[in-house]
């Protein structure tokens, strides 16, 4: 965790300085004769500086806590672990559904495809032991149809939400 803290500390330091700089550069609206103490950049500027300060503290403390090289190996190992792979696959499916499918095809169809693909991926390929192909495919298809149809009908007609 110390390496992650070091990196996140640096990111927050940079972000904080960037926010403070943008706040400083923000118009002071002198032409509108506003009170100088109420400029729009005041609060974001203070917050930017506070974030930079906290980021610095985090980074400095994590450097002090550990100086060995092993930490970087442990940190790198997180990204190639099977758990991270599972989270990555989940995120990829979620992004394909929300950014790629929704809005380009009817909502019910996008939902059916997503639910089917999700169940197949996790029950067939990322499961140990693997579930039988035909049984999984059938169960996934049935759930996909039920979810796609129910969600679309309930929200569109029951709760009057105009689905994308």
């Amino acid at each position: 965790m110390t390496r992650a803290d070091l990196l996140s500390g640096i990111v927050f330091l940079v972000l904080g300085v960037a926010v403070a700089w943008m706040s400083w550069e923000m118009p002071r609206l002198e032409v509108r004769r506003i009170h100088p103490a109420t400029v729009p950049g005041l609060v974001p500027g203070i917050l930017g500086l506070a974030l930079a300060f906290c980021g610095t503290l985090l980074a400095v403390r994590s450097v002090r806590a550990s100086r060995d090289r092993e930490g970087w190996h442990a940190f790198g190992a997180i990204f190639v672990s099977p758990e991270t792979g599972r989270a990555g696959v989940t995120l990829a499916l979620a992004l394909i559904y929300a950014l790629g499918l929704v809005g380009r095809m009817p909502f019910w169809a996008a939902t059916m495809l997503f639910v089917f693909a999700f169940i197949m991926v996790f029950e067939r390929w990322l499961s140990a032991p693997e579930h039988p192909l035909w049984r999984t495919a059938l169960a996934a298809a049935v759930q996909a149809v039920i979810v796609g149809a129910t969600v679309s009908l309930v929200f569109q007609h029951g709760f009057l939400v105009r689905l994308p």
């Binding site: 997503f114 169940i119 969600v151 939400v161």
Partner: peptide
């Protein structure tokens, strides 16, 4: 594996609605 895709669909609708 069966529950989470449904929850995500509801997340999309919940944010959109």
């Amino acid at each position: 594996e069966r529950l989470m895709p449904v929850v995500y669909v509801l997340c999309v609708i919940g944010a959109f609605a």
